[in-house]
């Protein structure tokens, strides 16, 4: 069964007939070919599917497509819409904060909200903030360093 929903996706107004029994994750991947968000567990335990919905980080595997009406969603693809990388993306590359890359889009989206709410987080605050995003490759150290480095960059840009 499909239902018409209107929502904002990566800054653009979208009108979409969404299959109702579909999660936001599946809708993004199947209907919009936005495959940056990944399914790692389908149960809200790994964070690989993290997107920003109405300004907060959510597991897109635990949101129904039907709930989207009137809401705003940003995916990893939305961070470099103008062809320019977000400072977080630059920092992840520069600090080697990624290995296999499968957790990376979700991790960056979580970090994006974290820095919005707390522009200069301490190491402990970063650790707590990204603890819902599992990474099996890096051991997290370089991810934390990348987020700190991006925080400095945002700060410098704002000054």
């Amino acid at each position: 069964m499909k239902q018409l929903i209107n929502f904002k996706l990566n800054g653009e107004e979208v009108e979409h007939y969404a299959p109702l029994n579909r999660t936001l994750l599946k809708m993004l991947r199947e209907d919009f070919d936005l495959t940056g968000a990944k399914e790692g567990c389908g149960a809200g335990e790994c964070g690989a599917c993290t997107v920003i919905m109405d300004g907060v980080a959510v597991n897109s595997c635990l949101v129904l497509a039907a709930e989207l009406d009137g809401r705003e969603v940003t995916t990893i693809e939305g961070l470099s819409m103008d062809g320019k990388l977000d400072p977080l993306q630059v920092a992840f590359v520069n600090e080697a904060a990624l290995q296999c890359g499968y957790c990376t889009p979700g991790m960056i989206m979580t970090a994006k909200v974290l820095l919005k709410n707390n522009p200069q987080p301490s190491e402990d605050e970063i650790k707590e903030g990204i603890s819902g995003n599992l990474c099996r490759c890096t051991g997290y150290k370089k991810i934390i360093e990348a987020i700190q480095s991006a925080a400095d960059k945002y700060q410098a840009e704002n000054e």
């Binding site: 199947e30 936005l34 495959t35 990944k38 470099s80 990388l85 990624l98 499968y102 990376t104």
Partner: peptide, 23 residues
């Protein structure tokens, strides 16, 4: 030298296609 990962940009933008991403 700490040469930057050659696959870095594709991975941070989510544009790298893994097998499950192939349609």
């Amino acid at each position: 030298k700490s040469v930057k990962r050659v696959d870095g940009v594709k991975k941070v933008t989510g544009s790298l296609k893994y097998v499950d991403d192939l349609k």
